[in-house]
Computed example of a mutant assay.
Amino acid sequence: MELGYIVSGLFVGFVVGLTGVGGGSLMTPILIFGFGLSPLRAVGTDLLFAALTKIGGVWSHWHHHTIQWHIVGFLALGSIPSTLITLQILKTFQYHDQQLTYVINLILGIALILTALALSLKGWLINTIKANNSSKVVLIIRHLRSNQDFIMISTIVTGWVLGFIVTMSSIGAGALGSVALLYLYPNLYMNQLAATDIAHAVPLTIIAGLGHWHLGSVDTHILFNLLLGSLPGVFLGSRLSISIPDRAIQITLSTLLMLIGIKFIL
């Protein structure tokens, strides 16, 4: 069984290194469908798995001064209270197994489908936001982005939504967060966007993961074995990503996540 967890960690780490996303989106379904963990236990274990695998990324981006800390702060103003409230909700309904399993599966399915759509539409969104034309959509986007109060409130609300979704499903901190930031802060370079998203995802997943650990829904033995596989997997995936077309990776991952999401809902 330990070998199975190590291989799963290797696979998910490889995908993360290859695409930059997909950690929670793939690991939680694998733990549920592949190893028979309860949804609550799978989510809790994956949250700490995600936090520990992303810490190195924050250190690297911090060293290169690409993290926009004021944006991280606005996101955290929403996500941290949301996470704490969601953990309290989970604690209240922790022993209502059937109802809680249904709710978590539903949120998992929705989060996976939204992640698949976010990956598919990210390229289109980039082109639309940066389009040099006067179409109605572009004009509305430009008008909203010129209002700093709108940007600040929207960032806090984005953090709130991410806090709830991530705590309930362990999914969304990467793909959903990056698409929201892309809309709200189109002048950021892509490395700044990724750095800011990761810098927010780490404390979010740590707080949510520790909350799940307090609830008893983290399996530390499984977590250790997943990390044994994921660390070399991330390295291998990042090396191979240079030789594989981004579009092919994007289509494959989006399709896979969409199918898994539909399975959770049905």
Results as ranks from 00 to 15, higher is better:
Ile249Ser: 11
Ile251Lys: 01
Ile222Gln: 02
Leu240Cys: 12
Pro245His: 06
Asp246Lys: 13
Leu253Glu: 08
Trp213Ser: 15
Val218Gln: 05
Asp246Ser: 14
Gly229His: 03
Arg247Asn: 12
Ile242Trp: 11
Leu259Gln: 07
Leu231His: 02
Gly229Phe: 00
Gly216Cys: 08
Thr255Asp: 00
Arg239Glu: 09
Asn225Lys: 02
Leu253Pro: 04
Leu215His: 10
Thr255Gln: 06
Leu257Asp: 00
Pro232Gln: 06
Leu236Gln: 05
Gly237Val: 09
Leu227Glu: 10
Leu231Lys: 07
Thr252Pro: 02
His214Thr: 14
Gly216Ile: 09
Leu223Pro: 07
Ile242Asp: 12
Ile249Leu: 15
Gly216Asn: 06
Pro245Asn: 04
Arg247Pro: 05
Ser243Pro: 02
Ile222Leu: 05
Phe235Lys: 11
Gly233Phe: 02
Leu215Tyr: 04
Ile251Arg: 07
Phe235His: 08
Leu227Asp: 08
Asp246Leu: 13
Gly237His: 10
Leu236Tyr: 06
Pro245Leu: 10
Phe235Tyr: 15
Leu256Trp: 04
Leu215Thr: 01
Arg239Met: 14
His212Cys: 12
Ile251Gln: 00
Arg247Phe: 13
Ser243Tyr: 14
Ile251Phe: 01
Met258Tyr: 04
Pro245Phe: 01
Leu226Asp: 06
Ser243Cys: 10
Gly229Val: 08
Leu253Trp: 00
Leu228Arg: 05
Leu210Pro: 03
Ile249Arg: 14
Arg239Tyr: 11
Ile244Phe: 13
Arg239Asn: 12
Leu210Glu: 02
Ser243Trp: 14
Leu236His: 04
Val218Asp: 08
Gln250Asp: 05
Thr255Lys: 00
Leu210Thr: 01
Arg247Gln: 15
His212Arg: 10
Thr252Trp: 07
Ala248Ser: 14
Ser238Gln: 13
Leu227Tyr: 08
Leu257Val: 05
Gly229Glu: 03
Leu259Val: 09
Leu256Val: 12
Trp213His: 15
Leu228Met: 12
Ser238Ala: 15
Gly229Pro: 00
